[in-house]
Design a protein around this nucleic acid. Structure first.
Length: 566
DNA sequence: AGTTTCGGCGCC
DNA sequence: AAAGGGCGCCGAAACT
């Protein structure tokens, strides 16, 4: 029995609340509470809070130590429902949803704000336009009806619930932060980059490497300027089109060694150096702002700090509190397992029904035991590789796993033709694949484009969402979308289950990166957490995909330092 | 002078 | 060896 209430914060720090019935309609009068957190704290029997926006409400609850079991985020659901209805690009605020319901002018969405480095509390800024509780409830009731009109209402309900759970997890991660040792980080930077010089210029090691590059070319060359490097190589008799590592590393020239080393260290210096540390680490925690469902595929993003791109070498600085541990858990071959689950390919399901290395099993069946070839082929099928070994091996893959390859091929075809493509739970790909917020308004409007391809059937390509876009690119996007997105569906449910298990412990979820999760917990809880991760993964598999033989094993490590995992 | 795009590379 | 999907971030270059 779920006890469901709606909540709308008021300007003065209070809130309006109302009890809801199973149909989403209020079963009692709206009550005015003088204190937002108190309104929640005093109702521990409520198992789901319905509110407009988790980022608006939940950080304020967390700040006073109040957690909730579940929520329903109306604006998040609006985004998913609009997508499912093929209405990507329409304003997704609750105010807009209300206007559509009532037939008034639809207000545009407010611009997205971005996180300020070191900002005191960007999470406490009001986000979007508030609505009176009664208006909010009208939108909510209509959303429940819209769920029923989707292709699979049960899956859509699961999706919006899972995403709302993800919003809670993200807010809690933003609240806790990732344990981070500034001291270890500084030592690391010094070891890698050498001393810093006054004035904020390059540290010693980078300056030395730049000198070596210049000496090798016989003139002053700035290794951080691609144009300069390309010119220098040309003068030395080597034509290079770019200074990308894979292109440079095959060049036979004495500048190559120091240049590649420079680029590696330069990257660390600018992206995770001393100023990053200053900006993003406070009180022993790194606090990126996690945004659940920040991408069209459902993957998360972080807003600031590059939270999902922590270089391996920098992970040495992620250190558990004294007496605590980090449980680092990585889903094994998540995406091919998801492909098996959604495509129902008998061969791939059988392979994915084992916990052992999936690529090895695939290679035993179709690639004479060559694991690397098998991995390239599988990833190539998922990513839409168009050349190289992946394409060649795709034929072998197709022979052994025809339904799996057909599944992504069909998605690609749908994408090329501008049809809607959905994840297993119903998250929907915008017709103009890859179009961001700014281009989404034009999504779905076919316009002839000069450099767009014309298909064999004479169909004109759709307007690109970005410069390199063409119908094939949209095909690749859609092909990947059904796998990456369905994987995100599954990962959300796994996270929700793990969060629930952690609620009974001191353990805190501190990091999530697509297929990897970190739980920070007292040492004595580590084994329990590991078991909870496995149980959550199993449950998520069944909830997301129904009865399926596909398993979702995790590699787990209990460590004091992130860098010691795997 | 301020804003947007590009090149390159980090992560999955 | 080289390339397909999703992101964010930085400084420089290119633009208003």
């Amino acid at each position: 029995m779920t006890d469901r209430w709606a909540l709308a914060p008021a300007e003065d720090g209070g809130a309006d609340v109302a009890p809801l019935g199973p149909d989403g309609l209020p079963t009692g009068p709206v009550r005015r509470e003088s204190d937002l957190a108190g309104a929640v704290r005093s109702r521990p029997e409520v198992t789901r809070w319905v509110w407009r926006s988790t980022p608006e409400v939940y950080p304020r609850l967390l700040a006073t130590g109040v957690r909730v079991e579940r929520c329903y985020d109306i604006e998040d659901a609006e985004t998913l429902l609009l997508g499912h209805e093929g209405r990507y690009g329409e304003p997704r605020s609750a105010a807009a949803a209300l206007a559509r319901l009532r037939g008034g002018p639809v207000p545009p969405d407010p611009p997205q704000r971005s996180a300020e480095p070191g900002a005191q509390s960007p999470l406490f800024e009001p986000t979007g336009t508030r609505l009176p509780l009664t208006d909010l409830l009208a939108v909510y009731a209509e959303q429940l009806r819209r769920h029923e009109r989707t292709a699979h209402p049960d899956r859509m309900r699961l999706l919006t619930a899972a995403e709302s759970a993800g919003m809670l997890v993200a807010a809690e991660m933003n609240h806790s932060g990732l344990p981070w040792s500034a001291e270890v980080h500084r030592r690391l930077l010094h070891d890698l980059l050498g001393e810093r010089y006054a004035g904020g210029g390059e540290p010693r090691r980078l300056a030395e490497l730049a000198d070596e590059v210049s000496a090798a070319f016989g003139r002053r060359v700035r290794p951080d300027l691609p144009a300069d490097v390309i010119k220098a190589f040309a003068q030395a008799g080597t034509k290079v089109k770019s200074t990308r590592r894979w292109e440079i590393q095959s060049v036979d020239h004495p500048a190559v060694g120091p240049l590649l080393e420079y680029k590696k260290l330069y990257r660390i210096w600018v992206a995770h150096g001393w100023s990053w540390l200053q900006d993003w680490v406070r009180d022993g925690r790194f606090r990126p702002e996690f945004l659940a469902g920040g991408t069209v595929t459902g993957r998360w993003v972080t807003n600031g700090g590059g939270g999902l791109q922590i270089p391996k070498v920098i992970r040495r600085a992620v250190v558990a509190d004294p007496g605590w541990r980090l449980v680092v858990a990585d889903a094994d071959q998540m995406e091919p397992r998801v492909l098996a689950a959604v495509s129902r390919d008998p061969g791939l399901m059988e392979v994915a029904g084992r916990e052992s290395d999936l690529y090895q099993s695939v290679s035993d069946r179709a690639f004479s035991g060559d694991r690397d070839q098998a991995k390239i082929a599988v990833l190539g099928a998922i990513y839409g590789q168009t050349s190289g070994d992946g394409l060649k091996n795709l034929a072998a893959l197709r022979r052994r796993f025809p339904k799996a390859v057909a599944y992504v091929d069909e998605a690609a075809r749908a994408g090329e033709e501008g049809r809607l493509v959905r994840t297993w739970l119903g998250r929907t790909c915008p017709p103009a694949a890859g179009a961001g917020d700014d281009a989404a308004g034009e999504a779905g409007i076919p316009i002839a484009d000069d450099d767009a391809e014309t298909q064999a059937d004479g169909q004109t390509a759709w307007v690109p969402g970005y410069a390199s876009s063409n119908s094939r690119a949209r095909g690749r996007f859609a092909r990947n979308f059904v796998v990456q997105g369905s994987a995100a569906d599954w990962a959300l449910l796994m996270l929700a289950g793990l969060r629930r298990a952690c609620a009974d412990l001191k353990a805190e979820l501190v990091f999530f990166q697509h297929d990897e999760v970190i739980v920070h917990c007292p040492a004595e809880e580590a084994d329990t957490v590991v078991q909870a991760i496995r149980a959550s993964a199993d449950l998520a598999g069944r909830l997301t995909f129904g009865e399926t033989p596909v398993r979702f094993p995790f590699t787990t490590a209990v460590v004091e330092c992130y860098a010691d995992a795997k």
